[in-house]
Design a protein around this nucleic acid. Structure first.
Length: 279
DNA sequence: TTAGGCCTGCAC
DNA sequence: GTGCAGGCCTAA
């Protein structure tokens, strides 16, 4: 499932191919994949794609002279570059024709993802970043987590919520918490500053390592070239319940936290908030 | 804060 | 055939 490294890998590939190019036409094959439009999508024809930015798991596509598209891959979304405007992949919902004979195909079997269209980049950010998303996980610093001292949620729920840190999903939350030796059920307000610093470092390390390998392949993820990511076999805990912890050898344990499957090392990741409201 | 719904493919 | 996987939104 696409998380930050997968989305970033897609972004880099797309930018190299289509940045600065003109939109020739837009073809919607499935209307409800377009979640919001401030103006008809067809009016993007003739506009120039200025660049592609990313915040968390979302891509922002600002156009000149006007318009900004937001895309989210959801669980099973893919954006692929093709030389044909005919849908070759099942579940292709949107095709954007770009000058130079390039066609951007948006496909998404499960349709958890989608596309939004705003008048401007500011409008797009207002709807998708300012209200609900925290700092992007790749530029996270320890100071960004000081707000945790006033929050009652668990580490797992907090990191999945995108509210303070944007971009992590179930895979990388489990990986980063394991690397930082923190228990996912621990309350964020009880995390020491030192542990927060360690977590920030581990989040960066996990994401950058994944990015170097082109993301994680799990189920349907592919990058814009339809390649599979190579980070999958390097995962330490995700999907590895019952296997030995590569750090201490203890058997990795599976549990459900915040309605999400979670894998931890019961020996490395000890809860430190026992004795007070530690149910 | 938590549960449910969305949706499909795949493992069992 | 059943159930689970998951991000994110909405409702209770």
């Amino acid at each position: 499932m696409p998380e930050l490294p997968e989305v970033e890998a897609v972004r880099r590939h797309l930018v190299a191919a289509v940045e600065g190019r003109r939109i020739e036409s837009v073809r919607v094959l499935r209307a409800d994949y377009i979640r919001y439009t401030a103006f008809p999508l067809a009016e993007l024809s003739g506009c120039e794609l200025r660049t592609i930015n990313r915040h968390g798991k979302r891509l922002f596509w600002p156009f000149v002279p006007q318009g900004c598209m937001v895309s989210h891959l959801g669980m099973s979304g893919r954006v692929t570059l093709r030389s044909s405007g005919d849908p070759s992949l099942a579940h292709t919902h949107l095709i954007i024709a770009i000058a130079g004979g390039i066609y951007l195909h948006f496909s998404d079997p499960r349709r958890f993802g989608g596309v939004w269209l705003y008048e401007s980049e500011v409008d797009a950010a207002a709807a998708h970043v300012y209200r609900k998303m925290g700092v992007d996980a790749l530029s996270l610093r320890e100071e960004d987590l000081t707000v945790w001292s006033r929050k009652a949620t668990s580490l797992k729920a907090e990191l999945l919520s995108q509210k303070t840190v944007a971009g992590l999903g179930n895979i990388y939350v489990d990986e980063a918490l394991w690397m930082a030796r923190l228990h996912p059920m621990q309350k964020v307000r009880r995390i020491t500053r030192e542990s927060r610093g360690r977590l920030v470092a581990c989040i960066g390390q996990v994401l950058r390592a994944s990015l170097r390998h082109g993301g994680t392949t799990f189920r349907d993820y592919r990058d814009a070239k339809a390649n599979r990511g190579g980070f999958g076999q390097r995962l330490a805990v995700y999907g590895k319940a019952g296997h030995p912890c590569q750090r201490c050898g203890a058997v990795l344990q599976s549990l459900v936290i915040a309605q999400r499957s979670t894998v931890i090392c019961p020996k490395c990741q000890l809860r430190r908030n026992h004795g007070r409201n530690a149910n």
